[in-house]
Design a binder for these strands. Structure first.
Lengths: 227, 227
DNA sequence: CGAAGCGTTGAGGTTTGTCAAATCAGGTGG
DNA sequence: CCACCTGATTTGACAAACCTCAACGCTTCG
């Protein structure tokens, strides 16, 4: 246990920053420190095994974090959208790789910099802890999806989840390719495509010609599939 | 974000307990507070949606934590073996159910009791944070398994993982049924049985007649399958 | 010894994956 | 502005992995 914390790239900082932060009165939010940087589509942000030096917040665009098997099979753990924090991990090395899905702007925070976390009255620290906890919850729900849901249900869950994270509107923008979706949902691109087509034929969704957005015509039906 | 911490059953306590703990010199370990309780096989420990009041450490036996879909499909998130801490979650309600797999003894800690965590020089607090972080890592690896591995590979990963967690010996005790294994690996009991049988025919493992243990005859071959 | 429950095995079906080809959207150069 | 090229997506035919249903065997326990 000792080692878990001792070797954590972030946790020591958190442990130091949180106490003051978590119980101090609210201060003005959003005076964040952190440099910005733009990434082009498919550009690597960090790789599995890299030493953890930073964590990140999406300003615009989208990011995928994933793991690879030795033979190239890929599992995309999560897509990170504007406002999301990612790159927060235990250990001293990244257990994931991260790439920009599209052209993306990130805010970069130095993981070892304790003052970054404490600086804004703990607001960032709270966000980081929240990111970690929400990451865990998301992972748990995703295990249910991967282990027990059909292709249709996976697509439905994915679309519902995206719509809730984005606008809440009925028109969803898909920054990622079918291959990305497939590797996130544990399917093949063909199965993704077929499931989407099938849902369209049933009138549950509409697929505009650019293929990079989805309109939820019948969210209730989708939610029913989400089980 | 505010709400994440505000509503966390455990995190406020952690936030308070950790700072002193994480940076103070080591103290005598294991002067734990916490009551003990025995559970019989299949007895419920807590249910999804229950208000979080405690967290738990396995003293003996085994525990499964799982989620259900509305139609009864089950995904077992994890098996918890002696020494493991479980029941640590964000939010104010359990997002899992927990049951004893076999007759099990647990040490029960009150989640809201800050002094419990600080009491032993932060040793327990470190354990709890470690449990949370390891839970996240385990979940991430498990997503790869569920999304991208074949039945054989899943069984191999499962056996390797169990052997590493238990003795490290080549003889593994399986406290859980085939149904439990299936619901953990995203398979059916028949597929689990067939994969085990196949591995036995290939001489990679041996299955004693009681069916509740496995002998790893060729761990290297298993590890190769683990990819 | 017999019943009950778990685990294994078999036959056949379904879903999803594989391979290949056609289509489509978007960008390029004329 | 249009023809063409390129890569992504869709579609089809087929195969494979896994699931379902059912029967059987084995262990355990009363």
């Amino acid at each position: 246990m000792q080692t878990v914390l001792a070797t954590a790239g972030l946790l020591p900082a958190l442990g130091g920053a949180l106490p003051d932060a978590a119980f101090s009165p609210r201060q003005t939010p959003e005076p964040k420190a952190g440099s910005r940087r733009a990434f082009t589509a498919d550009e690597e942000i960090f790789a599995e095994g890299d030493r953890i030096a930073f964590f990140y917040k999406v300003a615009s665009g989208a990011v995928r974090t994933y793991k690879l098997l030795s033979d190239g099979r890929r599992q995309i753990d999560a897509f990170h959208l504007p406002g999301d924090i990612f790159g927060v991990e235990a250990g001293e090395e990244h257990r994931f790789s991260a790439e920009a899905v599209t052209d993306t702007k990130l805010i970069i925070y130095r993981a070892s910099d304790r003052s970054t976390l404490a600086g804004d009255g703990g607001c960032l620290a709270r966000e980081v802890v929240g990111a970690l906890l929400r990451g865990l919850e998301r992972a748990q729900d995703h295990m249910m999806l991967l282990g027990r849901k059909s292709a249709r249900e996976r697509i439905a869950s994915f679309l519902i989840g995206l719509s809730e994270r984005m606008t809440g509107e009925e028109s969803i923008n898909l920054p990622m390719s079918r291959a990305d979706i497939a590797d996130h949902l544990g399917l093949t691109i063909e199965s993704v495509s077929r499931s989407l087509t099938q849902l369209e034929r049933e009138g549950v969704i509409a697929l505009p010609t650019n293929r990079r957005s989805v309109i939820l015509r019948n969210p209730a039906a989708l939610r029913r599939l989400d089980a």
